[in-house]
Computed example of a mutant assay.
Amino acid sequence: MANIENNPKIVADFIKIKCVNQWPELVQLNCHINRTDKNISALYADIIFSEDIQNLNGIYNVAVERDQKFVDYTTLELDYCTALHLVHSQSLIQIISSGLRRVSNFPLSCPLKKNKTYFVNGFTLDPKIIPIYMPKISFRTNATCLSNKREIFYITCFGRVMRK
């Protein structure tokens, strides 16, 4: 019987992040990737709104690379304010939400307060949730955020799942 401890670990590694602010009068947005002490890439972001945000919705998309093109895996319309406190029926959203809660100061409901710095401080995908049989893949996620039907920003992450 093989010893799992001696097998290579499956990890998700972020390669690139792109934060695009489409309404700079309403929001300040900064994001980047750093390596953790375990040599895993982690996402960091700071968001400050210039007014209280009562509603925040948008589209969340995950795509995987196939034949050098990204093919949609799932696309969801989300009410981010509701998603802050509910357990979502989509398991991928549950995984991301619980991971974000551990490393951010987002409230459990809206409004998001003006002049408060909301942060994500070292988001990683927990390797325990990645199946051992997962093949090497490249992925792209995109979260588009709207308030009152106007796009305010989007965040696109590129990464890969691989054996280490």
Rank of each mutant, 00 (worst) to 15 (best):
I132H: 09
L43C: 11
K128L: 09
I129H: 00
L125D: 02
R150S: 15
Y118P: 02
K149N: 15
D79A: 08
V62H: 01
V103H: 10
K164C: 06
P107S: 14
A63Y: 08
A42H: 03
H88Y: 12
I130Q: 06
S98L: 14
S97C: 03
S109P: 00
D79W: 11
M162W: 04
A143M: 09
E151V: 15
L100E: 01
I93F: 04
G122Y: 09
R102Y: 11
F139L: 14
F158P: 03
D72G: 10
I152K: 01
L146G: 00
G122T: 03
I152T: 13
R101Q: 11
T141F: 00
H85L: 06
Y60R: 00
K164S: 10
A45Q: 10
S109E: 14
I137R: 01
N57H: 13
S50T: 15
K69A: 15
E51I: 09
N121D: 12
E51F: 07
S104W: 14
Q54H: 12
P107N: 04
T74L: 08
K128E: 14
Y73K: 00
I47R: 01
N57Y: 02
F123A: 07
K116E: 11
T144V: 05
S89W: 15
E65F: 11
Y60E: 04
I137L: 05
C110E: 08
S41Y: 02
L100F: 11
N148I: 07
L78G: 11
A42K: 07
A143I: 04
I155D: 04
I47L: 13
